[in-house]
């Protein structure tokens, strides 16, 4: 009987270990680049390979979740820009809206070579990467990768090209113009209205807002109809004034980066 209990406990522990090792492998992160060995500018990419059915988050995770975090330690020969997030998918579970990526995504970081002499001496990049991966449940993960900058392989260049094409484009290239941008305070709510003009105004299907400091956008409130986007945002404190809005305008699955300021 004692042996049976012991075997049962062992089986449970083995099963838990198997589950946790599977959960640890839900996301694989790699560093890639498109450096041709000559140019002074290139993209560094953090490629996330995500288990089927699981997803990681966009820069604005939405109602729940957390955006991935990349902390780079660069040699003095290199200088990095901001992380660029490709177009996410809108993920809806009932009333809870998230923005994220299934299967695979490459987050891009523009890098400049500031000194080729120094690069010859040291070309090791360290990336500390953290993420939250969710499906039915959520599992945090992270890794630190040391990457030596070298001439990129064709597959890396192709992958970075693919994800560069998935970055939100300049709003000016959408063929749209902003006819009207209005923020109206009604009680505790800010009612935001953006009216677009142009041939493709009727094709606008969604708007993915960036996070707004001191305001909470009700993602359920986002309503797009006939070239007009309406949404509501609640201020953290009574005196907070909303006079700008940033986000992505979605047309035919493509994103256009919109940055609006009230005059």
């Amino acid at each position: 009987m004692r042996n049976l209990v012991f075997s049962l406990i062992l089986l449970i522990i083995m099963f838990q270990n198997l589950m946790s090792s599977q959960e640890k492998n839900l996301v694989k992160a790699e560093i890639i680049s498109n450096w041709d060995g000559v140019s002074n500018e290139f993209f560094l990419g953090v490629k996330f390979s995500i288990s089927p059915g699981w997803y990681i988050y966009w820069q604005n995770p939405g109602d729940a979740g957390l955006a991935p975090e990349i902390k780079l330690t660069l040699p003095s020969s290199l200088k990095a820009g901001e992380i660029l997030f490709p177009m996410p998918r809108k993920i809806t579970h009932g009333d809870i809206i998230s923005y994220g990526y299934y299967n695979e995504v490459v987050l891009l970081i523009p890098v400049k070579i500031v000194s080729k002499e120094k690069l010859a001496k040291s070309s090791i990049i360290e990336a500390k990467i953290n993420w939250l991966v969710c499906s039915e449940s959520c599992v945090p993960g992270g890794t630190t990768i040391k990457y030596t900058l070298r001439k990129a392989k064709k597959t890396e260049i192709a992958l970075i090209k693919k994800y560069k094409n998935l970055l939100p484009r300049d709003f000016e290239s959408s063929g749209l113009t902003v006819k009207n941008f209005r923020v109206e305070r009604k009680g505790n709510l800010n009612l935001i209205k953006i009216e677009f003009a142009g041939n493709r105004a009727g094709q606008v299907v969604d708007f993915y807002p960036n996070l707004i400091k001191e305001f909470l956008v009700d993602l359920k409130s986002i309503n797009v109809k006939n070239g007009t986007v309406e949404l509501t945002a609640m201020p953290s404190s009574a005196d907070a004034k909303l006079n700008f809005l940033n986000g992505i305008v979605v047309i035919n699955g493509e994103g256009y980066e919109l940055n609006l300021k009230l005059k």
Binding site: G65, H93, I96
Partner: peptide, 17 residues
């Protein structure tokens, strides 16, 4: 209360869909 609304963070509430 000076800060009455903030963005909550965490896992989504596991409601039935």
């Amino acid at each position: 209360v000076s800060v009455s609304i903030t963005k909550p963070y965490g896992c989504s509430v596991k409601y039935s869909e």
